[in-house]
Design a protein around this nucleic acid. Structure first.
Lengths: 164, 164
DNA sequence: TGGGGTCGCTTGCATTTCACAAGCCACGGT
DNA sequence: ACCGTGGCTTGTGAAATGCAAGCGACCCCA
């Protein structure tokens, strides 16, 4: 289970990947955002093996991304719904969707995302100045949570990819 | 390699996951965005097995995400740099980073992202009206690229998770 | 001239994860 | 009495990944 080692790195990209990086997890989240909530709905929609699906739903529950909710007693029946923490992953899925629409959707987007009454794409803007962010006007530096190694490494290195 | 079946789905989230969903790929991209470009840099930074790293770099090259560039003859030496298509994945990484900072960084963000002279978070806004997007004011519908099944499925289903 | 180190890998084998198929239990319907 | 449904669990084999070793063409240093 080497993917769990992601969680030990001091990195806000690696840590979420400890569970998001497991196969099928992101597609289960997509289904959750589309309103699906039952084991068999996920299974039918994805074609994933049931033991894997069961395992993923357990992990997502443990991570607090979904809530496992009993909607019937006798027999016990459960459904899975996104928590606030889970819904906060929406930007990740929308960013992925925007990229996929741009580069993989030859016949136009299979799915439109609607805000109020208009279909839209997700655009990333700066939380401070409100300007759109693109890959050319951004760089990085160690933050308050950086360890010594990270501080040293970043000091040594210029973001050379910017210079291109 | 069942993950390749992702690519066959008519879904702009699933298709990118056909390569992004492979273990280590997203972390290699993170390193690329941080300016790393050489085999040994990735290997040292990530601790990934060299055969896997080699395989991932090949895939990323084939997908047009990175360019494999010879920077030395005799002996041949290569480096890997992001293409425009690759840099367009930045919103995905920034969204992941923002979530990771919020939920997994107890001592503050290990890495700050800087826009001009100010550290910032990525905020998603609507490409049409410019308003910030959150998980409560969004729903979906079939787009021009939807197949018949997707049209039917979406008609049958309300986005129930919104009603919560 | 020789000995070590670097870079970018490849190869072989063990371990972990995943897929596929089958089955199970408590119902509910007919 | 029997079939179907929902939500799984349990095998077993295939595929992905990890680990360790090695390799070829240099370069550096003496």
């Amino acid at each position: 289970m080497a993917i769990e080692s992601y969680a030990e790195k001091n990195c806000s990209i690696a840590k979420p990947l400890a569970f998001l990086g497991e196969r099928w997890t992101v597609l289960i989240l997509r289904d959750l955002f589309l309103g699906r909530r039952r084991f068999d709905e996920f299974q039918a929609s994805l074609g994933v093996a049931t033991n894997v699906l069961s395992q993923r739903l357990t992990t997502l529950t443990e991570e607090g991304i979904v809530e496992r909710r009993r909607y019937n007693e006798h027999p016990e029946r459960f459904e899975y719904v996104l928590t606030e923490k889970g819904r906060d992953l929406q930007p990740v899925l929308l960013a992925l969707l925007a990229w996929g629409d741009k580069y993989t959707a030859e016949n136009g987007p299979p799915l439109e995302v609607v805000h109020g009454d208009h279909a839209f794409r997700a655009v990333q803007t700066c939380s401070v100045c409100g300007e759109p962010v693109d890959s050319h006007n951004v760089h990085t530096r160690p933050g308050p949570g950086a360890n010594d190694e990270q501080r040293r490494a970043n000091g040594r290195r210029a973001p050379e990819w910017l210079a291109h």
